[in-house]
């Protein structure tokens, strides 16, 4: 008798069941619904409903002072798709997302494996490598900007002293390097998140599997490839999925680093949304941009779900 079959077979009623002593008790089905209900309500009210509202707003022209709405059909989308700034921002968003994600995941995996080794001082190191994730983006952005400033910053100064460059370089003032440094900042800030996720998963790896494999004469690579990696896979995929969504939507690190400039060179879609909603005061256009972002992300996540199902199946 397994738990699963018990639910369906003995259920006199779907939701309630009479016990032998005559009292009622809830079925597992009811229990499941009760357990998930609070989450459904909260997520519905504060996550899903606002998104639908935002989606609806994209079909309206919205007065910036009164928030009064006039239905305009698809005109926001038409304006958006005709705007080269939108397409450029989309391109930059994809570059930013791909670059930060690839490095985060690979470096994050490397660091978490490193911290899983029996090394002296690793407990301290485990704490320290997490720091970037713990400092608010506001403080970090100001500090980085300051460190990188060509006239005032310590970075250029040191490089000059060591003779690596012969005159100060304004990294954030050139369209070609600004995005690169914003990407470095993003990697710096969010790699620790990947480390936390993977390190936690490594803690619960069934140790005997690893040991048994090593006794069987498997090489380290083989153990990693056939035991560790599949064990990590579901978490890697979830981390990838969520980080992709989050990096795509990242605002703080991008905006506070370079404020979307120079010449819109670091304007990604979330920065564009802010610009449209606050500065250009076209809230409807901002909502349309956001809706396009949702569609792109939904398509991407669909791909991840396929991976996720496979990773879970592999594990079983």
């Amino acid at each position: 008798m397994t738990v699963m079959t018990k639910t369906t077979k003995t259920a006199a009623g779907k939701w309630l069941r009479r016990r032998e002593n005559g009292q009622f008790e809830i079925t597992d089905r009811t229990l499941a619904v009760l357990m998930i209900l609070p989450a459904v309500i909260l997520i519905g009210a504060f996550a899903i409903y606002p998104v639908l509202q935002g989606f609806a707003a994209s079909f309206f022209r919205i007065e910036s002072a009164t928030l009064a709405m006039t239905f305009t059909g698809l005109s926001n989308y038409k304006d958006l798709f005709g705007d080269s700034l939108f397409w450029e921002s989309l391109g930059r968003t994809l570059v930013w997302t791909a670059a930060t994600i690839l490095v985060q995941i690979s470096v994050g995996l490397g660091i978490s494996l490193l911290l899983h080794q029996e090394l002296r001082g690793r407990n301290l190191a485990r704490g320290l490598v997490l720091f970037p994730y713990l400092i608010p983006a506001v403080v970090i952005a100001v500090t980085w900007r300051f460190i990188l400033d060509p006239t005032l910053g310590v970075f250029n100064r040191t490089m000059l002293e060591w003779g690596l460059i012969d005159r100060p370089i304004a990294f954030l003032a050139s369209k070609s390097t600004a995005l690169l440094f914003v990407i470095i900042g993003g990697i710096w800030k969010y790699t620790p998140f990947v480390v936390i996720m993977l390190l936690a998963r490594l803690q619960v790896i069934p140790v005997d599997l690893e040991e048994a494999a090593q006794i069987d004469g498997a090489t380290r690579w083989q153990v990693f490839r056939h035991i560790t990696l599949p064990w990590l896979m579901p978490v890697i995929v979830i981390t990838l999925l969520l980080r992709t969504i989050w990096m795509f939507n990242e605002f703080d690190m991008v905006y506070l680093f370079a404020f979307g400039g120079p010449l819109f060179g670091t304007t990604t879609l979330p920065v564009l949304v802010r610009y449209l909603a606050f500065d250009a005061r076209q809230i409807g256009m901002a909502a349309a941009t956001s809706s396009v972002m949702v569609v792109i992300l939904m398509t991407m996540s669909w791909g991840y779900f396929q991976f996720y199902n496979r990773a879970e199946a592999n594990l079983n």
Binding site: D149, P150, T151, L152, A170, A173
Partner: peptide, 18 residues
């Protein structure tokens, strides 16, 4: 100064103060 192409109030004042 180089970099002033992205400056606002804050950076230019910092430059003078330094």
């Amino acid at each position: 100064p180089p970099g002033s192409t992205t400056w606002g109030y804050r950076e230019q004042i910092d430059a003078y103060l330094r």
